[in-house]
Nucleic acid binder design. Structure first.
Lengths: 183, 183
DNA sequence: TTATCCATGTAAGAAGTTACATGATTGA
DNA sequence: TCAATCATGTAACTTCTTACATGGATAA
């Protein structure tokens, strides 16, 4: 699964230009997939060459022509094929969790700041997902709900357990623990 | 934050060879960070060139010499500096959630299969985190607990809401909904 | 006997990001 | 006046993965 498939997916929900695809990805998919213009535009060119999308150019005054893409029959088939592949593991890259792993190397105040921000961010994301809930299909509600469930659980966990990494006293205990376990 | 920082982090917990670093990353970090030999070995070479790690070569019979790396003072400082940077957003790439977004293009049975596997996978990961809980520091327990909280919330959500994407009747309703909202 | 563990490393390639080039319009 | 929105595209770069090269020891 790559940007190309994602473009096909967005186009299955309605015709769009590269620019619009980027915006829709930001709105709907940004929680679990990213893509920049630098990957979307080349992806669309290639999809067109392969006959998976078609393109109609709308002339615009004072700005580049808008190229509105639509799925071809082949494109829709390819999309369905791709989606039918059993999804692989999620890939997560979390600088926050890495930092938390090494909490004993940081100031308690710094950790507290990180956790505060993280909780705030989760609340923001939860709210965002909730606000969008009205105007979306059942499938999209399902995915948004999944996101909300995860963000809420994460925020609750952080509130309840932050003392584990914020207490200097505990941290020094860890240091002494580590002498025994480190290799 | 990149593989280099991660190597410094692992080394802060004890000296290790490239091979061992990979194993420890798999054990401890695989839930939120991946790294292959192809990225770890070059990273270590570069860290050594930059004086952030030192290396002692242990001769081994019948296999390549083992190169055991350790943090230098500079390396530890750099690690702390890196960890003090406010962590950016998590990056998540989930083929599963993408597939769920386009649930109406798939068979209900296929979706059910995907969700079954996903729940099973979450349970496996939860169990794995739980089993490892004993032999780890407070910081690591905190992070493992975070993972568990998230996996459990996700699995529970899937069980409770899977009907949203598994009912063919609802899916056709979505199709008619979409006529109004597409584009 | 077949796979997995141990152990390092390189080279080729995939996939994507960032920055640039271009530039009018619109809202704060 | 300053940033954001609209609009496309390319080139250089980063980062990481995969596959290869090498090969004994050990457990199933």
């Amino acid at each position: 699964m790559d940007v190309r498939t994602l473009c096909l997916g967005v186009l299955s929900l309605g015709n769009a230009s590269g620019y619009e695809i980027k915006k829709r990805l930001e709105d709907t998919f940004s929680h679990f997939y990213d893509a920049s213009f630098g990957s979307i535009y080349p992806a669309l060119s290639r999809l067109q060459k392969e006959g998976l999308v078609e393109c109609e150019t709308e002339a615009q005054s004072k700005r580049p022509d808008k190229k509105v893409y639509s799925l071809t029959v082949d494109g829709r088939l390819t999309l369905v094929e791709e989606l039918n592949i059993m999804p692989g593991r999620d890939r997560v890259r979390s600088e926050f969790l890495v930092a938390m792993c090494f909490a004993d190397l940081l100031d308690a105040s710094q950790i507290a700041e990180m956790i505060d921000r993280r909780i705030a961010e989760h609340q923001r994301l939860t709210a965002e997902l909730t606000s969008r809930e009205g105007r979306s299909s059942a499938a999209q509600k399902f995915v948004a709900g999944y996101g909300r469930a995860v963000y809420e659980a994460a925020a609750a966990y952080l509130e309840e357990n932050r003392y584990l990494v914020e207490s200097e006293a505990l941290m020094s205990q860890i240091d002494s623990d580590r002498v025994g376990t480190a290799d």
